[in-house]
Design a protein around this nucleic acid. Structure first.
Lengths: 344, 344
DNA sequence: AGCTTTTCTGTTAGCGCTATCATATTGTTC
DNA sequence: GAACAATATGATAGCGCTAACAGAAAAGCT
């Protein structure tokens, strides 16, 4: 019922014998405070286990301490992984995360963005692919002067900081992996056409084949949409081909899982008769049988970096931003599991 | 850059010719305001498209407009479904959701709860199973007088409102479904022992068999933990039995998916040689092949109800709560897909 | 009509913090 | 060591809203 009253800024100030303002400056680590007082204040903060009142802060500054996460991604596991990663870091920095889903309808999506800006008054926004490549959305954010970070964007790479991994290289390497296992008839299920990474992965795939002097017939290339369903119909087509491929590289795990299902349906044994590799290393990859060989994309890590970039305030003033600081590339890892094997 | 200044309460007051306080009362729909002024104010609110500043509100009242969601659930898909459902409704009501994961370590979990209460100052808490049945957590919330809603709780059903479905009945029905398909040798993988629903489902299973005069050998009952992994080893045991079951009822979809994998590994065809049914109807159920026959649990719906209960404020004063209002049961649905079939 | 009771509306004083500017302290230069 | 700049700290005034009370209007009663 009745709680200990929360310790306030004032209490800390009194306790450390300085003014409230000085304490405030220490907490916001911006102003100029001598090392001695800083130490004193920090000790008091710790001792009283003081935590600033977010609402008061929000009200007094015009910051909201809210970050927005806008997604429109067919792969639930990708989104929820990202969500978890960013939630953690937001909490740690006293921020809260407001999640919104973009609509197929551009006008509605722009409406969501507007709402995030004007009503929730987010301090920054994270855009997941493919929303991160909609020019109108970017324009709106730039006009409104809202800092934003994009994840694996495809275009306009100099308008905002972004986090990504080397999709091209990863695709290249996992394809070479299949080639080293003796596969020559390798098919590919392309990812969602609006997502830039799809193209990069496709290109990596093609170049790996080319540099190994392997040609790929056009019927080995199927367009998917990153969903299980789209992967299923793509895989069914591939498996009904006269010259059936001995390996399939799907542009994400959901579609790789679908390819496995398609193989089961056709009584094709994975991996002895058909190798399948995916991309992302979402939970799904180790939930279906056989477990999917895939590229581990550091989703949670990317989420962390994205939040950090926004929280740091480094990019709040777009005129002061060095172009070279925009790019943040994280490492991937090739993970071999039971869905791919040496060609027998 | 420069935005229209946000309209404030004052603007609405001026516009409608009343005091700020009256506007405030209209907005919070508590105080006594004459119908005429209420209408006038509401018109002004609409015309100016006024939205209250959440932070100011939080600061002035002692409400935080935050709800907490505490989970500790092995099934990611369950949690993320629930998360999505509650996020939507929170947004619609001007609330924000703070998500936290309970730890295996009770002390840490209690710490999280304390943090949610004291620092984030949540107005209410949603507890997912199995956290919703930890007496210490409940005690803490009751002592702190924080309203909370539990999802599918197992014990102390009179201390808080809760949302659930009839796990017993659903398990009974899906088991009968198997029986009607001619199965007699039916095995069960029990869910996480800390989750009450596991027991109810197990009981429903047993009673369905009993009422059909079918006996179940003890080796047909395996303990799982709602994870894919636990389901896998359970299924492997079941499938290596001398008198192999012809059907398996797993207490959730993750474990059912694992059972399918185990069958694949043993070259047992699903569903002709082995029927498998799950529980929950998470995304996974229609992502593995064959698609899993399961019980659709209305997870998002449950999330909605939970948020509604907290937002409504109905249960803010525990002394005024009628015991009969606590229980909220939602409907389930049996979904038959390709993982189960008539015994041949 | 005069009185009380009830319903409605306004006034005042913060909630806990930060922006802004003023002031104090220190360091630097010749 | 006076004159100035640079750095560090403090006082004050809100941010936009609501709680708590005071005051006005309406309704009910004799």
């Amino acid at each position: 019922m009745s709680k200990d009253k929360k310790t306030r800024l004032q209490d800390v100030a009194k306790h450390s014998g300085v003014s409230m303002m000085t304490v405030s400056r220490v907490l916001n680590q911006n102003g100029m405070v001598s090392d001695k007082t800083r130490a004193k204040v920090q000790a008091a903060v710790k001792e009283l286990s003081y935590r600033p009142n977010v609402s008061a802060r929000r009200l007094a500054s015009s910051k909201s301490f809210f970050l927005g996460l806008l997604y429109d991604n067919p792969s639930t596991s990708y989104v929820s992984q990202f969500l978890l990663g960013s939630l953690k870091l937001c909490r740690a920095n006293g921020y809260h995360l407001v999640v919104d889903e973009a609509d197929k309808d551009l006008a509605k999506t722009l409406g969501s963005v507007e709402e995030l800006i004007n009503i929730t008054q987010v301090d920054g926004l994270i855009l997941l692919p493919p929303v991160c490549d909609i020019p109108e959305v970017l324009d709106k954010l730039i006009t409104a002067n809202i800092p934003f970070v994009r994840v694996s964007p495809d275009s306009q790479l100099n308008v905002s900081p972004y986090v990504c991994m080397d999709d091209y290289q990863a695709a290249f390497e996992i394809t070479e992996q299949l080639i080293h296992q003796g596969h020559i008839n390798i098919a590919h299920i392309i990812g969602h056409p609006d997502v830039g990474a799809s193209r990069l992965r496709y290109q990596g795939f093609l170049d790996a084949l080319r540099s190994n002097k392997i040609s790929v017939p056009p019927e080995y290339i199927e367009q998917g949409f990153f969903t299980y369903k789209s992967g299923l119909s793509a895989a069914i087509s591939l498996l009904s081909l006269e010259n059936r491929p001995s390996a399939i590289f799907a542009s994400n795990d959901d579609m790789a899982a679908a390819a496995i299902s398609a193989a089961h349906m056709n009584n094709i044994h994975v991996p002895t008769e058909l190798s399948i590799v995916g991309f992302d290393d979402t939970e799904l990859a180790s939930t279906v049988w056989p477990h999917i060989s895939t590229v581990r994309q550091p989703i949670q890590e990317m989420a962390k970096v994205a939040v950090e970039l926004l929280v740091s305030g480094k990019f709040d003033d777009p005129t002061k931003t060095k172009k070279s600081d925009l790019r943040h590339v994280l490492d991937f890892e090739i993970i071999l599991r039971e869905s791919s094997a040496e060609l027998s």
